[in-house]
Design a protein around this nucleic acid. Sequence first.
DNA 1: AGGAGTTTGTGAACGGGAGAACAAAACGAG
DNA 2: CTCGTTTTGTTCTCCCGTTCACAAACTCCT
Lengths: 219, 219
Amino acid sequence: MTARTSPDSSRDIPEATVARLPIYLRALTTLSEQGTSTCSSEELAGAAGVNSAKLRKDLSYLGSYGTRGVGYDVEYLRYQIAREIGVTQDWPVVIVGIGNLGQALANYSGFRSRGFRVVALLDADPARRDEVVAGIEVRPFDHLEQIVTDHDVAIGVIATPAVAAQDVADRMVACGVTSILNFAPIVLAVPAQVDVRKVDLSIELQILAYHEQRKAATA
Amino acid sequence: MTARTSPDSSRDIPEATVARLPIYLRALTTLSEQGTSTCSSEELAGAAGVNSAKLRKDLSYLGSYGTRGVGYDVEYLRYQIAREIGVTQDWPVVIVGIGNLGQALANYSGFRSRGFRVVALLDADPARRDEVVAGIEVRPFDHLEQIVTDHDVAIGVIATPAVAAQDVADRMVACGVTSILNFAPIVLAVPAQVDVRKVDLSIELQILAYHEQRKAATA
DNA sequence: AGGAGTTTGTGAACGGGAGAACAAAACGAG
DNA sequence: CTCGTTTTGTTCTCCCGTTCACAAACTCCT
Ligand SMILES: NC(=O)c1ccc[n+]([C@@H]2O[C@H](COP(=O)([O-])OP(=O)(O)OC[C@H]3O[C@@H](n4cnc5c(N)ncnc54)[C@H](O)[C@@H]3O)[C@@H](O)[C@H]2O)c1
Ligand SMILES: NC(=O)c1ccc[n+]([C@@H]2O[C@H](COP(=O)([O-])OP(=O)(O)OC[C@H]3O[C@@H](n4cnc5c(N)ncnc54)[C@H](O)[C@@H]3O)[C@@H](O)[C@H]2O)c1
């Protein structure tokens, strides 16, 4: 193997590319499990559902990890992407709001397998105390500060009703959480240095409904 | 009130705009509940977390529903957006895979309140049969065709493990479903006329991790 | 060793979306 | 009625992302 260009990691990768890297990572994991050791950009792009030129350009932001005329080494590329995203390290996570959705999240195995470790489940409802979900005890929301400090938690997940979400976010930010994944259907206000990503199921359905309506209109 | 331009609805609205309309709709609903009858683009943009120029441009694709010097009538605009998206009508939905996540989805009230009606819960596991989740009986996956036909279902939700998702999607497409919301971490292959949207929690977390890592590096 | 075949990495063209800026329109005060 | 104020609707410019297309680089076969 010849020397690969692995440029300084301070370049910033375009946001659209960052959003696709986890998809490539998943596709590579699947290929690896199937025993494939090498793949072309065409194959990988197919598995990831994107254009092969886009894939190559995305990967070129990380460095030059392929071999012309051959393709990419699956394991090697997988490691490089994992390292770039940061999933080679362990990320402690707290989940707040252990209702229907919070319980499903706590039970989700896809967390752990990608380097995310649920260190605590928090809920404001006293009735939920001492319940054990997915092998983890549900603790009072007031323990937030303690837990975040003790485990050096940077990422928080909010699965409370919308009315409580801003309060929860404020408390998280106050005690040092800098990334929030929000499931509540509300726009959170946070300081600029805090990242928020939202998942809103009903928005997704409404987008589908819009297109569905268009199809029906032209049919 | 003067005549509003309400252009032919065959124009196509940019995808980025379509994705924001549900957010505006939610913000308007909140304003309405608070008793606000009129709002400016600045206020609404604030509530939706977007730039006001962007909001105005988005709304201009629907028509000219505001009044210069005054702003927008909350109820009127809300209805116009709802109609444009298609949530003034009733959308029957089936959910397949009633595990952790499927149960949470079935229990989610945000569905119903936005015009989506869960007509059936399907699961392949015989042990799940006759269970009742959220007041709806869990039925065998084989009933899919019957249900889709009977209720004229256009939208399907997949919450099965990844290995089963493609099969489920194929069956859905075969019996007439044309929009799929996929929670399984896999890229679905479907005919061009079928819309698929995916929700992948672990991708969202990985994106947060990437930025978190960058923050840590520069700190 | 050389040529044919393959596949990467990237320059360049293109398209769409974001935001600034402003003219047009509505309203209210006098 | 007229002027000043407010706020929309839209134009214009810039930037980011996508895609095409191809030279460079590598392998394999003869
Ligand atoms: N269930 C779904 O499939 C689904 C889908 C999309 C979005 N959501 C959103 O996710 C959120 C949670 O949904 P759910 O169905 O799990 O609701 P839920 O009512 O079942 O659970 C909410 C939990 O949050 C807890 N809680 C309330 N206030 C709190 C606070 N201040 N601090 C800590 N915990 C608090 C409650 O005790 C409860 O256990 C909601 O905002 C909902 O709109 C849910
Ligand atoms: N739980 C979460 O929070 C979460 C988050 C993100 C993504 N996901 C994804 O959502 C999916 C479901 O997750 P889960 O935690 O609910 O899993 P789960 O194992 O609890 O539930 C899966 C259900 O699907 C059913 N099923 C399996 N094969 C089927 C088939 N061919 N037809 C119909 N039903 C079938 C199973 O009987 C089971 O009830 C998985 O793909 C998971 O990766 C889950």
